[in-house]
Design a binder for these strands. Structure first.
Lengths: 350, 350
DNA sequence: GAAGAGCGTGAGAGCGCTCTCTTGACAACT
DNA sequence: AGTTGTCAAGAGAGCGCTCTCACGCTCTTC
């Protein structure tokens, strides 16, 4: 809480000094700096010259104090471990957010609550209004944070569809459609017994991907079979375990749709060990198009998500909300792309 | 530049109100909030009660205005693309930084300059003193940013050893030692013709790893051979190209030290295509211990870096600098760990 | 017992900015 | 000529906080 202050800080150039040099009042300099139209061209130029000459930069704290705006938004990443360290989702997302905000000269405050105490602090920080808005990256559906922040009237955008749509704006990718396309691709390749390795049921993305899998299976007139639906935790080991289980209960399977590349990689290792060839005997498709997909042997067909775009879109929507708090919640769904590689090559029809 | 303000912002509880409720002056409340020892126990308690009751949270802008401290530090990531998206380096690093700072209630402002204009803006932002300090993640040695910021007296810590040690504090991993250990491990496994696939020469980490490779080779009394030293760009394709080249010029090689896992993966694919078995014919070691290493077939021996720790250390050093600007630059080198997997299994001595 | 030291508390200035209100100049009406 | 409107520019208050200084009290010390 305490801000330890020991060293004196250099003081910058103030409006006052610029005003003196330009021979105008503080208010006029402020108008010029903030782009008000109510300044004559002549005065504007002389102020601009003075600003340039003195290297004036507005003091954000002073400005914030009166405008009640911080000029910053928070990105809150509440991922215990998992995906945070497995694929470059977060850097890409942050890059997207950053790109969308730099044009508006708004800063990105990154919050990565780790412990429970952190989590409380994060919520307090946001609710205290230290930022103008927040982007919550909430991959688990049951996150209580959004509720608290929305209740505190802080403009908020969630990345990833929330479990319950509590009137909050969100940006998500079309997980269901992406999964469906992937499975349709397997079907088009002549596969008929297609298993799914899904993610944890508390994650909305996992549910949506499973739903997409079912869509495609049902629509193709194949038998929906719970025995073909395994669940794991998005990790490689989890994928391997799920694959072993699937081979035991449905040895006749000829394709696997895995809801993450890592799980696909684990599954491929098990298939390999079991003497099943990929893609000849079993085709496989992953999800995320992470570096692992390109590196795998054979290279893994995977569903690519427009991650940077998601970040940009989230930032855009948030800035709209910040500018106009009464705006209705927005829902943005971005489409995915299937990246075809060798792991899902179709087999010659027998 | 302009901060568009349209909506009125809610105003929070102020010191004044707390003071009134507690029956003391503003100054006393300030002292309590900031943990000054010069307050009697009785008054302190009554102020704390009032703070609690009103849910008072200090206004950071007002505080900053007078203390000339922002209560935030910047993390600047200037990576055009490459590593940003290939392994989870940045999320881990950020997590480390975040963990070290949350205890001090200091915010992390993330800057990811993309375009050249961004880059200028970033420098301006830092130089303007909007943050109390900066952590620069500078993987390329020739980054001009540190110089400008140091010159502006902004406390700075660089992650990754800078090309020229201009008296700046930095935190790095022992790349040279890590590489050396990896190559020693290959030698201990009976390998005698060991190639290196290095990274771009403008990256200090790449140079250091190459130096470590040479250390081990020389010390073992093996012939130093420039023909065994290929250079690539840390990517998979680059690694593949380098491997093809190496096989062409030194077909007798029996081991490869790659300065990244991605390059190792590319190299492994080429070895496989060329009919060389890993590890029987050619042993291989990567670097980074990224997800790709565990996923590879065979799993890749790799050098693991303490990335979170690096972030924490960088934050710690920076906070020291912020608290005491006269402190001498610090250099922190963290050690690496060799993670042994199947790709480098030793061969039975003939 | 007077002088000084020590300590808890309050008064008040002021950090740098924005923004409302006012002024004054000039043009355009009646 | 008098009124009104328009618009550039200035004056001044005040955002919420910290911090210096002054004050008054109690406790030592010779």
């Amino acid at each position: 809480m305490a801000v330890t202050s020991t060293q004196p800080r250099p003081r910058g150039v103030t409006l006052e000094e610029v005003a003196r040099l330009a021979g105008v009042s503080r208010a006029t300099v402020s108008r010029v700096v903030n782009g008000s139209p109510r300044v004559s061209g002549e005065v504007r130029r002389s102020v601009e010259t003075a600003v340039e000459k003195l290297g004036y930069v507005p003091n954000r704290a002073a400005r914030s104090l009166v405008t009640r705006r911080s000029g910053s938004i928070a990105v809150v990443i509440t991922e215990p471990t998992g995906r945070l360290f497995s694929d470059p989702f977060f850097p890409r997302l942050l890059r997207g957010v950053s790109a969308a905000m730099s044009a508006r000269d708004i800063q990105l405050v990154l919050l990565m609550p780790d412990t429970l105490a952190d989590s409380r602090r994060t919520a307090d920080y946001l609710v205290a209004g230290h930022v103008d808005g927040a982007i919550l990256v909430s991959l688990h559906g049951d996150d209580p944070l959004p509720g608290r922040i929305i209740a505190a009237q802080i403009p908020t955008v969630v990345v990833g569809r929330p479990l319950r749509d509590g009137g909050v704006s969100y940006v998500d990718v079309d997980n269901r459609g992406g999964a469906r396309t992937a499975v349709e691709h397997l079907i088009a390749g002549g596969r008929r017994v297609i298993a799914s390795i899904g993610g944890p049921a508390d994650m909305v993305a996992a549910r949506d991907r499973l739903a997409g899998y079912r869509d495609a299976v049902t629509e193709a007139g194949l038998a929906a079979d719970p025995g073909l639906e395994a669940v794991a935790d998005f990790t490689q080991d989890g994928g391997a375990g799920a694959m072993e289980h699937l081979l035991a209960v449905r040895p006749e399977l000829d394709a696997v749709f895995a809801a993450s590349d890592l799980m696909a990689a684990g599954a491929m290792a098990v298939l390999h060990a079991a003497g099943r060839r990929v893609p000849e005997d079993v085709a496989i498709v992953g999800y995320d198009d992470s570096p692992v997909a390109a590196t795998a042997r054979p290279p893994l067909t995977s569903v690519r998500q427009p991650i940077e775009e998601m970040g940009q879109e989230a930032a855009r929507v948030l800035l709209e909300l910040v500018d106009d708090a009464d705006r209705a919640p927005r829902r943005v769904i971005l489409t995915t792309e299937l990246i075809r590689r060798a792991s899902s090559a179709g087999r010659p029809t027998p």
